[in-house]
């Protein structure tokens, strides 16, 4: 399937965010187009994770506008962001440790589950049908990410690389239109990284999901992303296609040159 990059679906304008005295983000603007893979790079502490947290409503910027699918908002809570089709993974894995892989992924579908606890108490009729229907969809995701053999394992017992994959599965279970990935390949070996790269590309191509991704591995970023935003000390210092960004002297000075 040929990839189609559409119109802007997420537009961030002049976002500023600070914690007490610490300015995490200063006057940052960029946009994300439908169907693209948009990377955010920058040195440690540059404000990349904060940026994702602003997009899905975990942090509320002091200044700026966010326009998502034509709707402007100033602040939004994470629940609303999820309801609008934004899903994400975390830099430090945020799985539900005591639950199995299957249950973790099933939680990703909670917004689509309509039956309340009284129906569930009976586990009868509509409640049962709903569980089974969602289980089927979740099994498709499990097949897609090739984690069939661990579906009944408590996630706490899985190695790091697999946990990252389960977290991606949980985000995908929500069938998001915008997927935010915070360092999905951090701490992985080469082989795991390749797998994860392939999954991200498959999600983007086959499901048409728009992806915003933070990644430190420059090789990966240059390979898979359509456009790259570069942050440094909470400011935007570069924005464009990978080739352009890679050759931008300001970016090289701030980031690529500094040992990376």
């Amino acid at each position: 399937m040929a990839r189609v990059i559409g119109d802007v679906i997420l537009d961030l304008q002049n976002i500023s965010l600070s914690f007490g005295g610490v300015k995490a983000l200063t006057n940052i603007s960029f946009d994300v187009r439908e169907g693209e893979i948009r990377a955010i790079i920058g040195p440690n502490g540059a404000g990349k994770s904060s940026m994702l947290n602003v997009i899905n409503g975990v942090y509320h910027p002091q200044q700026g506008r966010i326009v998502f699918r034509g709707q402007e908002r100033r602040r939004m809570n994470p629940h609303e962001a999820a309801a609008q089709g934004i899903a994400r993974t975390f830099q430090n894995i945020a799985l539900f440790k005591g639950m199995t892989v299957l249950d973790n992924i099933m939680t990703g579908r909670n917004l689509m589950m309509r039956r309340n606890f009284l129906w569930n108490a009976l586990y009868w009729g509509p409640s049962r049908r709903e569980e089974i229907a969602h289980r089927k969809r979740v099994e498709e995701i499990i097949d897609f990410l090739e984690i069939q053999n661990i579906r009944k394992t408590p996630v706490g017992r899985l190695p790091y690389g697999l946990q990252k994959r389960v977290e991606l599965a949980r985000a995908l279970a929500a069938e998001p239109s915008l997927l935010l990935l915070d360092e999905p390949m951090a701490g992985m070996n080469v082989e795991e990284k390749q797998d994860m790269c392939r999954f991200i590309l498959d999600v983007n191509e086959q499901l048409g999901t728009t992806i915003v991704l933070i990644e430190h591995d420059m090789g990966v970023v240059m390979d898979i992303s359509d456009r790259v935003v570069v942050l440094d000390y909470g400011r935007k210092i570069g924005d464009g296609p990978p080739d352009e960004v890679r050759n931008d002297p300001v970016v090289i000075e701030a980031y690529l040159g500094a040992g990376h």
Binding site: N56, V58, N77, P78, H79, A81, A82, A83, A87, R88, F90, A94, L95, F96, T107, G108, N110, L111, R170, A174
Partner: peptide
């Protein structure tokens, strides 16, 4: 935090 982000 993760629960909330998922929409719970």
């Amino acid at each position: 935090v993760a629960a909330e982000v998922i929409g719970i």
